[in-house]
Design a protein around this nucleic acid. Structure first.
Lengths: 210, 210
DNA sequence: GTCTATAGACGGATAGAC
DNA sequence: GTCTATCCGTCTATAGAC
């Protein structure tokens, strides 16, 4: 019904692509309900297979979780253009990468599952490390900016808010805005966090009194 | 151990304040692990009472959830100073209210429970409505600004990101920053969302072609 | 490779003794 | 008001027939 199958000539595999069906079902359900609230039974039912079959392909629920949520976008590669062109305009470029990745249905679903996993006790640290290590890390090291940790935290707080309200909560005004409108609204903020003035002194240890 | 008891003269209540103990335990656990991952048994164990006793005081788990997460801060009252002084500087005032409320241990715990509930299927709409209705609503109506829906959504996206990264994920750079540093970093953003230029035309329906 | 059956644990909720 | 005992549901995971 979904994927057009090419005429298999040699030996027909016992199962066409049951494993893939399970992965698709798992992806959808994890994205919609998170890790804990999604049961293996529900995944099996959606995929139209027996619950035991799910265990046959994947050792545990956690195993299925990480398998289903493999994002096909390599952050390091996607962020290369953001970094290479230097700090000027990096805010807009970073934002456009975010909107592109989340705008693609293919990559949005697994990402939603990951985000839903953030607020669950188990996956909190895992996802946090992934976010900072894979996404913000390259940008931080690639751009030559001062106080990179603090600046990237500011950037992350705005990007996380956008993702949360536009793609998870689906706040109507944000959903209605076009990519260009979003860029016009948010790019100045991101850019200021990246290269604008910061309240604290950069790296000087002792602050003279008078 | 906790509350100093005044010498009860008349009839001693059978229980000192077991109900309050249960509420405290529920608040802590809901804040730490969310709704689904917190069991009634765990709450009873933490409160040092029998699981059945929890059901005696509260009809259901959902009932206990809403009872435990009653925030003692009335948003309408807390936000009055933000609104009354008009749009100028409203960004900083709004931000300071947020930091004050979340800075108080007393109110932070129930708020954490509410936030954790956002990403769970059950409480999503409930919490979203509460957030927009109680917090952003008064500000939107109180300040005389154009395109209030869109502006409040922009504001909400930044505030939500701050809450998520500073109080839920606890990103070190954000935790380390003082309130004044946070205000210096974020107030300009909030203010621009409230009163700055917006990409779209305000309320004009038809945009002339040429 | 696919399924039936079930183990083993934990969850919320209830009835009723004291 | 507090507790014991228990029902009934759902879950993950496994063993084994076909």
């Amino acid at each position: 019904m979904s994927t057009p199958r090419q005429a298999a000539r040699g030996r027909r595999p016992g199962t066409p692509d049951t494993r893939e069906e399970i992965l698709r079902a798992a992806r959808d359900l994890f994205a919609a309900s998170g890790f804990a609230a999604t049961s293996m039974r529900a995944i099996a039912a959606r995929a139209g297979v027996d619950p035991a079959l799910v265990h046959h392909y994947f050792d545990s629920k956690a195993d299925l979780f990480v398998s289903a949520l493999q994002v096909r976008v390599d952050p390091r590669q996607a962020l290369l253009p953001v970094i290479e062109a230097g700090p000027d305009g990096a805010g807009e470029r970073l934002l456009r990468v975010l909107l592109t990745v989340w705008g693609d249905e293919e990559s949005r679903t697994p990402l939603l599952g990951l985000v839903r996993g953030i607020l669950e006790p188990a996956g909190a640290t895992l996802v946090r490390d992934a976010l900072f290590g894979l996404v913000l890390g390259p940008v931080r090291h690639g751009l030559g900016i001062d106080q990179p940790e603090r600046r990237m935290a500011l950037v992350a707080s705005q990007l996380a808010g956008i993702v949360l309200l536009r793609y998870v909560v689906e706040a109507p005004p944000l959903v209605a805005m076009t990519d260009d409108e979003l860029v016009a609204s948010y790019a100045p903020t991101i850019q200021r966090y990246l290269t604008g003035p910061l309240p604290d002194r950069p790296l000087t240890r002792a602050a003279p009194e008078a």
